[in-house]
Structures are given as C-alpha cells and as structure tokens.
Amino acid sequence: MIDIQNVNKTFRTPDKREVKALVDFSTFIHKGEVVVIIGPSGSGKSTLLRCLNRLEEIDSGEIIIEGVNIYDKRVNINKIREEIGMVFQLFNLFPHKTVLENITLAQQVVRKRSREEAREIARGLLHKVGILEKEKVYPAQLSGGQQQRVAIARALAMRPKIMMFDEATSALDPEMIGEVLDVMKTLAREGMTMVVVTHEMGFAREVSDRVIFMDEGQIVEEGTAEHFFTNPVHERTKLFLSQIL
C-alpha cells in the first residue's frame, strides 16, 4: 500500500548546517497494517510522516501510495492528502470554528458534501470518539484529550484509507492519554492502515503489527512489539527502550 524507496531528506538549518533527517530510508506498509515508529527525538520519525503526505518534500527516492508516485509532477497532491488522515502532536484544531465546524469544513470544501451530510458524518464520528455533547463549543473550551479526539474525528471525516499519528499523545496530561489511545486502538482493530509515531509501548504491544526503531534517519531495528520487549538486538535499541520504559 505504501512503498517507500531509498528516501533521502536533508534539512538546512538557519546557520547553513545540513541535518540528515532521512537516509536511504526504505520500507513497505501493507493495507491494514499498524506500524509504530519509535526513536529518539531528531531521528527522523516525524519527517518520515510529513514526507508521506508531502508536508515536506523529499530530496531523492520514491514514495508510492496505492500505485501512485506521490512526488510525480502530474499528481495532484490534494487528492492524495484526502486519502491520508493526519493527527498532530498539538492537535491543530481551527480555533475560530466550533467542534462541529472543525469536522465539517474540509468535508464541504474538499469532498463537496452537503452541509447536512457533513454534519451527519461529523456527529457519527463525535459519537465514536465519545464527545457528541461538545459539538457546539470552541476548541479552547475543551481539554487536551478532547481536542485530540476531535482532531481524530476531523481526519476520519474525510474517510481516509491511511491514518498517520505524529506523537498524538505527547502533549497531553497523563490522565488524558488513555482516552486518545482508546480511540486509536479502536481504529486499529477496525482494520485501518496506520502509521503511528509514539512512545506508547503499551499501544504498540496491544495493536501494532510492526514496530520500527529509527535513529539518524535510518531503520535500526524492526519487528513485533514483543520482539522489542523480549530480545532487542542492537545496543542503541536497548538503550532507547531502557530510557522510555
């Protein structure tokens, strides 16, 4: 479903230093697979996600999603993005719109759904993430966990084929992490293809098919969550796991 081939991405810092975010990165993600990406900060995890929907441009390599090379000049990237939901660390809800409007906006503008249809879908999703009663309030009046659940509903409203989570629980107070992870677990069990950058190893163990440990823009080690818990091979992996577990 997602074929990532020899992707390189280098950032230039303001003082002209080059930072390699992805180095000859390759992997394949199957339909329905839940892939968890872990790694220290600056290892290229977020960059990888952001390259998958072209929020960042890659320097070389190929990313092919459902047979379409998304870096092809003839590709309309907006069409690709409709199919890839993204959830951000800082939620990025639209603060000037109510919860319901946050979820209906792109449906109406991008998917060209009628207002009624968009609202119906939005309400269904709000019910699913458990905050139907908050549809009329503004994001600022919600807790972090509630905001993130709205953000998930907003992404799901596009009926995406793939969902990406960029440290979706890292900015949350500890007591709110669970409610967001529960929504993510439900999605995983429903068969959604998911690429999840997270440090929540509990989530990885419960629903992931594969865990990728990244460092310095490359895959250091990959395998099932169980593999990482029981017998990680690389010293770098062991060190990292000992720090987060």
């Binding site: 907006n78 939901g85 809800l93 998917r111």
Partner: peptide, 15 residues
C-alpha cells in the same frame, strides 16, 4: 498564525 494551522488544513486535502 501557527504554521500547524496551514498544515492541518492542507493535510485534509484543502488547496
């Protein structure tokens, strides 16, 4: 306006 706003909108497929 925080750049995450543009990114969120674009990632939903908006032009």
């Amino acid at each position: 306006i925080h750049k995450g706003q543009m990114e969120a909108a674009r990632s939903l497929g908006m032009t």
